[in-house]
């Protein structure tokens, strides 16, 4: 092979930091976000206000999937129990709104605590409770891996599901309506467009958080825990605490999405905790592209649109979803993002 001229190759080719700022993946990411952002305004303009809530729904399930993607895609932890966190977030919003509505006490011991319709407070509570729950579930299930991990996370989520079904104070099987949507100071959350913006900003923040996280030392360690656990331990970093923290962060993101989801629907019920929900979030991650930052956004757009458009035509829309999923798994291993933006770049 002839020696290439040094001048030609000495430039950015070998330096990962000198990548072009705008590559195909970033372009696709930007287009996806812009499409999601623009759609409710277009819907508003043409008077199809129903579609504003649809866009909010996409933003919320995308955010839930961003959380799960952190566990599955970046951490290699295939959680089949993320509905536990989605539902817990939902119940935090629902229960708080319930007590705020009838002015009763949420807690009388050890402190007295009433309900609240203050959204930031509800989100914070959802985050803290989801983090605690994930700490317990993670600490136990991360001692296993593979199929056992999948089954244990599923079992924990189902435990919560049956608990919610059998707990009559908050509706049990029937669920709990949220009569008045929780409030955000200075905003009218009842306005669909305003509520969409809240959801969209939350999605954007969770994406930014994940992107930043995965570039940090923690992200480097988590990546190595997924790619080669032995290497990580041999390098002097114990994989378990790294994975546990990633699992907790993942649960927190999915939990806040759950709180937003309950407020969007004005309802929270055990279905938010069921394994169907866990599967749905997982399907979105896989459809979009496992371990791709914007995979969940692409996956959520496709999933919710299929659900709405095909679901309106036939009851058996899940059959078509199954076919699409099969196609993605068999022919597009990188999911939608793999199709749109090409193979993932590793530095």
């Amino acid at each position: 092979m002839p020696e290439p001229a040094m001048g030609a190759l000495a430039g950015p080719v070998s330096l990962s930091s000198a990548r072009p700022w705008l590559n195909r993946e970033r372009l696709i990411n930007g287009l996806l976000l812009m499409a999601l952002f623009a759609s409710p305004f277009i819907a508003q303009a043409v008077g199809e206000t129903y579609y504003i809530n649809l866009a909010s729904r996409i933003a919320i399930v995308a955010m839930a999937a961003v959380g799960l993607n952190l566990a599955i895609g970046y951490g290699g932890m295939i959680s089949f129990g993320h509905a536990a966190f989605f539902g817990l977030g939902g119940y935090v919003a629902g229960i708080s709104a319930f007590h705020a509505f009838d002015m009763s006490l949420l807690l009388s011991w050890p402190i007295t605590l009433g309900g609240s319709d203050f959204m930031p407070g509800i989100w914070l509570a959802a985050m803290v409770l989801c983090a605690l729950l994930a700490l317990v579930i993670g600490a136990i299930s991360l001692r296993t891996s593979g199929v056992y991990f999948i089954m244990i996370t599923l079992a924990f989520a189902q435990m919560l599901y049956y608990f919610a079904v059998s707990w009559p104070s908050y509706g049990g099987d029937d669920g709990l309506p949220i009569y008045l949507r929780n409030q955000f100071p200075g905003l009218n959350t009842n306005d669909p467009l305003t509520y969409f913006l809240i959801c969209f900003v939350a999605l954007g923040l969770s994406l930014a958080l994940c992107a930043r996280l995965m570039r940090s030392r923690f992200g480097a360690a988590l990546t190595m825990a997924r790619l080669n656990e032995t290497r990580l331990a041999t390098a002097g970093i114990s994989p378990f605490p790294i994975r546990l923290v990633a699992f907790v962060l993942s649960a927190v993101i999915t939990g806040v999405a759950g709180a937003l989801f309950a407020d969007l629907n004005g309802f929270v019920g055990p279905s938010m905790l069921s394994w169907h929900r866990s599967g749905e979030i997982m399907v979105i991650v896989i459809l979009g592209g496992v371990g791709r930052l914007y995979g969940p956004v692409a996956g959520a757009i496709l999933f919710v649109l299929m659900e709405t458009l095909l679901g309106g035509v036939t009851e058996y829309w899940m059959l078509f979803l199954g076919l699409v999923l099969l196609g993605v798994v068999l022919f597009a291993r990188g999911g939608l993002m793999g199709l749109l933006a090409g193979r993932a770049r590793h530095e």
């Binding site: 990962s16 930091s17 570039r215 940090s216 030392r217 923690f218 480097a220 360690a221 390098a235 970093i237």
Partner: peptide, 16 residues
């Protein structure tokens, strides 16, 4: 990064 202490640093990008 292991010998420099813990890996629970979430913000600073490693590539810089």
């Amino acid at each position: 990064q292991a010998i420099q202490g813990h890996s629970f640093r979430f913000w600073k990008p490693v590539d810089r």
